[in-house]
């Protein structure tokens, strides 16, 4: 891990922890409101358990404060479609 830009000259802070969402390889995770979640389920005409899953302990899920039963929208970069949207149900 590389040292972060020191806030002051006296103190050099070593970054031991960083937000995974800041990493360029981690796609955007967006926590949906319950209403938005229902919209998604309606759009695909499915029930929540038919969605792909994400574990509650997943670092990206933790960071956005997801709870079990929430739906997370994941927007990935795609070479052919520019953006590809994916939804995951939070489980434990």
């Amino acid at each position: 891990m590389s040292p972060s830009a020191a806030p002051s000259k006296k103190k050099v802070v070593l970054v031991t922890k960083f937000a995974v969402r800041d990493h360029e390889m981690v796609p955007d995770h967006v926590l949906l409101t319950p209403e938005e979640g229902v919209e998604v389920l309606k759009a695909f005409n499915i029930v929540a358990p038919q969605l792909p899953k994400i574990h509650i302990n997943d670092p990206a899920a933790k960071e956005i404060g997801a709870k079990v039963g929430d739906i997370i929208k994941i927007v990935r970069k795609s070479t052919t479609a520019k953006h590809s949207v994916f939804y995951r149900l939070v489980i434990d």
Binding site: F44, Q50, L51, S78, V85, Y87
Partner: peptide, 17 residues
């Protein structure tokens, strides 16, 4: 989707092409 109706991809091959 697979046989139980579980979604594998929301758009076939990300771009539906």
């Amino acid at each position: 989707k697979e046989t139980r109706g579980m979604i594998v991809q929301f758009q076939y091959g990300e771009d539906g092409v």
